[in-house]
């Protein structure tokens, strides 16, 4: 592909991509540098380099703030959410992409409409609901909430990828094995 590009095009492409990459890396580097500095240093010069790098801070947050426990909770909730979203969104995306379900327009509208609701407006009602049914301080409750929030987006993103799978492939799978149900083609 490189032979198709002129040297100038390539130069400007790399210039643009380099600037974009820098804009992403800069805050991350800043975060690493600031983690090694004291509060006073950060406030007096937000963009400075650490004078005496304090690596002990990592040991300190690990022990004092129970970072390990929080990390474990995050991993648990993330794993559960991903599993739930994949289980729900993948088959749903397939039937909606192939329009195998009556009223796919209404189902699409229903799912997409839920993405327009701002999170901060349903956090409080959700909290009181979960308090009433005794699901506070529960990993599984959190997984279900996150799965509900992220399923519509995952569903429709997966759907756009599935649209690019040729329908002939699915038909070939069906004709090869007579007993194959259309869902195992997915």
């Amino acid at each position: 592909m490189t032979s198709l590009q002129s040297k100038t095009t390539q130069f400007f492409a790399y210039l643009f991509l380099g600037a974009a990459a820098f804009s992403v890396v800069f805050p991350l580097v800043l975060m690493i540098l600031n983690s090694l500095r004291t509060n006073f240093e950060i406030l007096s010069s937000p963009l400075g380099l650490p004078e005496t790098p304090n690596f002990g801070i990592y040991r300190q947050v690990w022990i004092e703030s129970r970072l390990g426990g929080a990390l474990l909770n995050s991993c648990l909730v993330a794993a559960g959410t991903v599993t739930l979203v994949c289980l729900v969104a993948t088959p749903a995306a397939w039937v909606i992409a192939r329009r195998r379900v009556p009223g796919w327009m209404a189902i699409s509208l229903y799912f997409l409409a839920t993405t327009t609701v701002p999170v901060q407006m349903f956090i409080f009602p959700l909290y009181f609901l979960f308090a009433k049914i005794g699901l506070l301080n529960n990993h599984f409750a959190l997984m279900f909430v996150y799965a509900a929030i992220y399923t519509p987006f995952s569903l429709f993103l997966l759907r756009t990828y599935m649209l690019s799978i040729p329908i002939e492939l699915e038909e070939a799978a069906k004709s090869m094995v007579p007993e194959t149900s259309r869902y195992s083609g997915a």
Binding site: L112, T115, T116, F153, F156, L157, R159, T160, Y161, L163, S164
Partner: peptide, 12 residues
């Protein structure tokens, strides 16, 4: 299809 969908999500 992906561009159209991400355009929609960007708007929302």
């Amino acid at each position: 299809p992906t561009i159209l969908f991400m355009l929609l999500m960007s708007i929302i």
